[in-house]
Simulated scan of single mutants.
Amino acid sequence: MLPSQHKITSSEEFRKTIRSGKRAGGGTVVLHVLFSRDVLTTKPRCGLVVSKAVGNAVTRHAVSRKLRAIIRLLFDDLPPGTLIVIRALPAAAHANSEELSHDVQRALAKIRER
């Protein structure tokens, strides 16, 4: 579980991050990142999108748990006010934690280069 101060809770924030943020993907995930300059005092926040295309409920929850553990480790490196939406692709169902972590970190590095 992510602490509530690290969760994106409103659909408006999800929509804003996906539409206005930078996007990069890998084989198992797509990251949408919005570096917000408006709210510099808030902590980085993250939201997950794990659709039925990934698998049944057990598989989706397992993927969500792995992604939450990965993003929890990245929060210290993100600037305040950053919004991240991680969208799991169907390949995430068969990926282990190391593969997911590699794809998330690689996508985040691509976004930072831009």
Rank of each mutant, 00 (worst) to 15 (best):
R45L: 06
V63T: 14
V30W: 03
D103C: 02
V30C: 04
T59S: 13
L40D: 11
K22Q: 15
I8A: 09
G27Q: 12
N56Y: 14
F14E: 01
T59Y: 06
A92V: 00
F35M: 11
A95F: 00
D38P: 00
L2P: 00
E13W: 08
G21Q: 11
S11M: 11
I86F: 01
A93K: 01
L34H: 09
V33F: 06
Q5C: 14
A93T: 04
F35E: 10
S20C: 14
V49K: 03
A88P: 07
V58C: 11
C46Y: 09
Q5K: 14
C46V: 15
A53Q: 15
R15H: 12
A88K: 02
A69H: 07
R45M: 10
R15L: 13
I8G: 04
H61V: 09
E98F: 00
P80D: 12
G47K: 01
F75K: 02
L2F: 07
V50N: 04
S36M: 12
A93E: 02
L100S: 02
K16Y: 10
T41N: 14
T41G: 14
R60G: 04
P79V: 10
L40E: 15
A88I: 03
S4R: 15
R19G: 04
P44I: 12
A53F: 05
I70W: 05
G81T: 10
T28A: 14
R15E: 05
L40F: 12
A57K: 02
E99K: 14
A69K: 03
P79A: 08
S10A: 08
V30D: 02
P3K: 08
G21E: 06
A62R: 15
R68N: 10
G26C: 07
G47H: 14
A88R: 02
I86L: 15
R87L: 11
H102A: 14
A88Y: 00
V39N: 14
G47S: 13
D38V: 10
G55F: 05
